[in-house]
Amino acid sequence: MKFITIAGPPSCGKTAVLIHTIKRLLEDDTKVAVGKIDCLETDDGERYKDLGIPVIVGLSGDLCPDHYYVSNLEEILTWAKKNQAEMTILETAGLCHRCAPAIVGCLSVVVIDNLSGIDTPRKIGPVLTTADVVVITKGDIVSQAEREVFRQKIRLVNPEAEILEFNGLTGKGSVRLRKILLESPEVHTLVDETLRSSMPACICSYCTGETRIGNSYQLGNVLKIVS
């Protein structure tokens, strides 16, 4: 089984990139299963089901979607095995950029779009720096110069990754991405594998449902902007 994570900010094109690439994988009869983690709501499950492949959707509700995602990795792998998948692709919620639920030993893809601003590569942290493959979308709507500068900014924070330009509307780039996915490592279990970077420390009163504002309600791990 190949287990691949695909992360990136909301609306950067993760689902568009995956749909085009999965279509290519299906041409070779590769058995693909997709998991989608989100927080409150997502239509992505339906979009993947239209491809006629097994899909599992997890909504984290009141929990942090990235913590929820890590807590369910083994369950998703087991589900995919039951569905005879050869490749499991997991789309993350992509809500905050602090977490990078990339897994050591599994291919990690990050999607980032040309519209997100020139400083984004520097700002988004582990999700970009720990990725094996950086997919850049929406090059069809910005200038050649901006594409070049954006690519170079990505190169600066992640010198190792393969950078791939992709058009999420036409699927341009999907053949190359298919090849990369097909060459990704095999895993049998995720138990005892590790994350490539740690999640932020938290557990304060707001994590457990507190809604009131003020020092006296803030218990646990609390950091102040001015000390």
Binding site: N114, L115, G117, I118, D140, I141, V142, S143, Q144, A145, E146, R147, E148, V149, R151, E165
Partner: peptide, 27 residues
């Protein structure tokens, strides 16, 4: 290939929030 091929189409726009001068220096 992105090092040898440049592209220009009707749909492309500038999106970066910067002046012409600074932009060209950056590029």
């Amino acid at each position: 290939r992105s090092e040898i091929i440049a592209q220009l189409s009707q749909t492309m726009n500038f999106v970066m929030d910067t002046t012409v001068g600074d932009f060209l220096i950056l590029h």
